[in-house]
Simulated scan of single mutants.
Amino acid sequence: MRVLTLWAQDASSNLGVRVLGEGTSALVRLAHPGSEVVCQSYRQGPAPVNIGVPRTLLRERVTDRAGLRSWMRSFDYVVDMRAGDSFADIYGLQRLFAMSSMAEFVRSCGVPLVMGPQTVGPFDTPRGRAIGRWSLHRATKVMARDPLSADAARALGRPVDVLTTDVVFALDVPEPGPERDVLLNVSGLLWTSDSHGPASRYQELVRGVIADLQERGRTVTLLSHVLEADDAADSDVAVVRALGDELGLDQVVPTDLTDVRRAMRGARLVLGSRMHACLNALSVGTPAIPLAYSRKFAPLLSAVGWPHVVSLADADARDAVRGLLDRSDDLTAAAADVRPTAQPMLDAARDCLRALV
């Protein structure tokens, strides 16, 4: 069995994207043991062309000059992951159109296309809704990783085949790393950009949360979840290092996905500004307090029994974090139930893939 995963990487500097790559590979192998799984995103991967250029895809569809059509037909099916949350128009129509063009290219090659476990929507523009509706109806199978996404698909006239959860739960639980008290993931994107709300407000909140933790006698270690790379403009590393040096806090810059998951399993508590930082923690049994910057956090986490999400858009976000810190023992006990809750949902995704072949 040979399977292609689109728009997810197993060697990305963004460890959330790496979760999508390695987690999807693990899910495929649960369905079809021994399968070869190939990851491709833009130029990252073995495809003979950049798959993010619609004009190139159209030319290859007609001529197969670079061999993309022949290469695509070497796969038994394709799992389209859309970077987890890019099947939406919030990142611009160009990105949505490019990814959807690649999905259409797959279908034109006669290869089954599965919309893998991901966020569906929001689609706030007429053109975005039209592209989303077309992609959903063209897919062989559609999965959503949260109920709100399933509702979005239904609103576009194509109910999902499977309501599942994130592929992080397909990853093995690693041995614990060094014992630490609190790991605080600081987002370089939120710290330096106003694209998801005022950066100054986020900085104030992070500093306040650190002060609240220290007042409670907790030991804080800062954590990077997006590493440094030539194309990682939103890396967490520079911010974590600068803030850690300023406040005299230890810092963890993991080497890979296993390393960060080991670090989280060794911690007593994780506070995360990246959704997959929180999911990595919960999937290894460590409680997490998400500092959510978008609507993708709450429905996914609530579906696996974790309603403890703090929205950065709320004026009382710091108070909400304080309230959860006061319930640390309750959170620790509840975290043990998350993976067992997620498992049947993941099994549904596995069974869906098994039924393809």
Rank of each mutant, 00 (worst) to 15 (best):
V17E: 15
R18Y: 05
V19S: 11
L20N: 03
G21D: 06
G23E: 07
T24S: 12
A26G: 04
A26M: 14
A26K: 04
A26R: 08
L27G: 00
V28G: 07
R29P: 09
R29I: 05
P33C: 13
P33T: 09
E36R: 13
Y42T: 01
Q44R: 12
G45E: 13
P46A: 15
P46K: 15
N50H: 15
I51D: 12
V53C: 14
R55N: 08
T56N: 09
T63I: 03
D64T: 09
A66T: 03
L68Q: 13
R69C: 02
R69L: 07
S70R: 14
M72A: 10
M72Q: 05
S74W: 09
Y77E: 00
M81Y: 00
D85I: 06
G92M: 09
Q94C: 00
Q94V: 03
R95G: 07
A98V: 07
A98P: 00
M99D: 10
S100I: 04
S101C: 09
S101M: 14
V106N: 04
R107S: 00
S108E: 12
V111D: 07
P117A: 00
Q118H: 05
Q118I: 08
T119D: 10
V120T: 13
V120K: 03
P122A: 07
D124Q: 12
G128R: 01
A130K: 00
I131V: 10
I131A: 08
G132F: 06
